[in-house]
Design a protein around this nucleic acid. Structure first.
Lengths: 340, 340
DNA sequence: CTGAAAGCGCTTACAG
DNA sequence: CTGAAAGCGCTTACAG
């Protein structure tokens, strides 16, 4: 059996209560006693049993991290490790552990979240996505567990603590940039419209067009679902139009490079024949051909801030809901061209 | 307060013991009683408290996943999410949760692992790397907790349960392929030599050269540490040699594309002036220019098998140590050229 | 400043 | 087939 508090107590000639207080570094214990107990803990190789401690303190020092689902988006994309790195850093500094959902679809994730909340497995939750009519999020909103969202909630934002980019402005800036370069026929390949981030970017796209007096052409708008193979057909259809676009905005660098590849099959070259602006600025994108013009959304910071806000909330449940907007930057590289 | 087993017991007119047995689906309880208790559980929204259950059963149903460290390798690379996806799938099927280390360096990770093992936070551990003289691994080897390694252990492989590719053969095949294409001056840009995977690939590289009667030229061998900026200097030095290589083997697709980028600065074009074979076959590599010839190491399967073996070991601690070699495939694309 | 006691929410021999 | 009791390893009022 493992060394328990009792073993330490016996050997140090104190009561278990005292050992417990030494662990908690309670100020009412003499430095002398503390030292003696600590020596014994060291000698016996004592480590506190988390299960026991958690049970009585009703605290787990664990953060639950909820991904959309392991089968698709979250895992195919460098977004996930990078946001996790930000979360991880704050967790470690505050002595929290990380517990991940493993569900492969929406329903599995929902069940896991309910069970980890009700079963007191975690002290708080970070939801790595924001989606419309999401059962998991509705459950969390009605529970009393602290949670933060990476992404703007669909409604009642004042009632949630969340971290987000300004996706409307980001998309607007990207499209403005293309318009400045002389483009008017600008297509938009966005993610699934149940995600708020996709809705926001679509809105920014439309606003930028409106600002420039360019009518919104529905045929230029492609709502990419999570299937990986759609962008090929989408690309081909787009370029086969009577008035094909001269520029495309894509919602992720990986998608952009796929599109570029399909364009190549049509002998359309980026940036000479067509310009591309993307989102997420993956690390490798600066090294690839063409180097991608992409909006850097500070993924690490999204994770970092989400966990910082969450731990604040755990420590002080009465704190009001906070929103942090993480800055974004349009990184201009070689995938866009000024039209003559 | 949350609903406990006592609340359910009272309402269902049974003892807490009975409720506990219903949860465990103990066969000694009448179907009738079970149904009644279950109805009450549903009605009250009962969920078992994991902390309490874990404490008494000395089981957590949680797997600890240990990364090299969050600051470098593990997180910059698509390897991590993909191996996690494999782990996750098995975890979910077996009702296990996933607990991640958050340490940013070797020492932090070591302390976390000791604390999560001694503190009974996990039932078993997956070590996502294999390194020479690794304190964490030595600790695990001397503890009694079940663990599996992704990667071949440095010594006494029979005493460990692990999953690996045949990295010696993989490298040999990659180099053979280049030799077949007529290359003789073949450079090797490998990862840090404390990692067993790097050692194995170096060995395969050397064997392939030896098989073909090509002497090993130490200047063609670059041992890339984890700093991201090395490959630039490495590339430049390599190409400034009197006899620059005509082909390069790199240990990861991302590194390959960085190298390609630096070659471009020297007006050296792949595959026309220089051929490249890489490892890991990232999803996007088939779409990029040049499409990369790369060894697919079945990352998902590495994670899947590692967790499968681990859970076997947890369920049956006396099972003997097992080794699974996951198949690899050299995917030939456009980054290599036959020499005249 | 320290200890004895109660209790966190479960499980599991032991009785009956 | 079901219950009363003990106990998992801690923490924390309550005494002294």
């Amino acid at each position: 059996m493992a060394v328990t508090i009792k073993d330490v107590a016996k050997k140090a000639n104190v009561s278990p209560s005292t050992v417990s207080r030494v662990i908690a570094n309670n100020s009412r214990i003499t430095e002398e006693t503390k030292q003696r107990v600590r020596d014994v803990m060291e000698e016996l190789g004592y480590y506190p049993n988390f299960q026991a401690r958690n049970l009585v303190s009703n605290k787990t020092n664990t953060i639950g991290v909820v991904m959309a689902n392991s089968a698709t988006l979250s895992f195919q994309n460098p977004f996930f490790p990078e946001v996790l790195r930000g979360i991880s850093s704050v967790a470690h500094d505050n002595q929290y552990g990380l517990y991940l959902t493993t569900g492969a679809n929406e329903e599995e994730v929902y069940n896991e979240v309910v069970s980890m909340v009700q079963g007191r497995r975690v002290d708080g939750i970070i939801l790595l996505y924001s989606r419309q009519n999401d059962a998991t999020m509705n459950y969390l909103a009605n529970s009393s567990i602290p949670f933060t969202i990476v992404g703007r909630p669909f409604e009642n934002p004042d009632q949630f603590t969340y971290v987000d980019n300004n996706n409307v402005d980001n998309a607007k800036e990207a499209v403005h940039y293309l318009i400045e370069l002389g483009h008017e026929r600008i297509a938009f390949v966005g993610g699934g419209l149940d995600y708020i981030v996709s809705q926001d970017r679509l809105k920014g796209y439309q606003q930028a067009l409106a600002d420039a007096g360019i009518p919104f052409n529905e045929q230029y708008f492609i709502n990419e679902e999570e299937t990986a193979s759609l962008s090929r057909d989408a690309t081909l259809n787009l370029m086969n139009m009577d008035q094909p676009p001269t520029a495309i905005v894509t919602h992720d660098d990986l998608v952009a490079y796929e599109v570029i590849r399909y364009l190549e099959e049509l002998a359309i070259s980026v940036p000479y024949d067509l310009s591309i602006v993307s989102f997420n600025n993956h690390k490798i994108s600066e090294h690839l051909r063409p180097p991608l013009t992409s909006v850097d959304i500070s993924i690490y910071d999204l994770g970092y801030e989400a966990n910082r806000l969450l731990i604040n909330k755990i420590n002080d449940p009465d704190t009001e809901e906070q929103h942090v907007i993480v800055p974004s930057t349009l990184i201009k590289r070689g995938s866009c061209r000024q039209l003559p």
